[in-house]
């Protein structure tokens, strides 16, 4: 069946099988940052943005992307580098396999929550599992990143 959607800012037209999930389609289209970690919608590794909202691409039928804007980490390389530097400075990226889904959800959180408390951050990201870091290093990096973004914003206002 024909599917037309926006992938990382580009309009795509694809012929897809009726049962195909978005995750599979994205990987065949070269978005290898999108990982699969389970079959039960529990790990968050496959998180992408669909019309700015974080979704599990393993659970979205590809055909539901019709007309929607899908963004993967391939489309947010600069932002990924920016946040990723904070994560890397904690050594909390570790094996890296959960990073893309986790970082995409941070971007979604930034969009949805203003000035989130630590509790709100933890709750927003609860669906992103990580087995290496024990999470605390990730939290440190988020705190530092948000403070940095805040200071950038303030500088922007001053200028």
């Amino acid at each position: 069946m024909n599917l037309s959607f926006w992938l990382n800012g580009k309009l795509c037209n694809d012929e897809v099988e009726p049962g195909m999930m978005l995750l599979e389609l994205l990987r065949t289209k070269g978005c290898y940052s999108v990982k699969c970690g389970c079959e039960t919608s529990n790990c968050g590794l496959c998180t992408v943005l669909m019309d700015d909202r974080p979704v599990l691409s393993c659970s979205v039928p590809a055909l539901r992307a019709e007309g929607k804007k899908i963004v993967t980490m391939e489309g947010m390389q600069k932002e990924a580098e920016e946040f990723g530097s904070f994560l890397a400075d904690e050594g909390a990226e570790q094996c890296g396999f959960c990073n893309p889904g986790f970082i995409m959800n941070i971007f979604a959180m930034e969009r949805e929550l203003t000035d989130p408390t630590e509790e709100e951050i933890q709750e927003y990201l609860a669906g992103n599992l990580c087995r290496c870091s024990g999470f605390v290093g990730q939290t440190r990096s988020i705190r530092k990143y948000l403070a940095y973004k805040e200071s950038q914003k303030k500088e922007g206002i001053r200028e």
Binding site: Y32, S33, V34, K35, T72, M73, E74, Q77, A80, E81, F83, G84, S85, L87, A88, D89, G91, E93, C95, G96, F97, N99, P100, I103
Partner: peptide, 20 residues
């Protein structure tokens, strides 16, 4: 506490794993 040498490839989602 230096950064891991592969850190930036990992945090930007580069295709570096077996199935990629």
């Amino acid at each position: 506490p230096v950064r891991k040498k592969d850190a930036m490839a990992l945090v930007t989602g580069k295709p570096v794993y077996t199935n990629d």
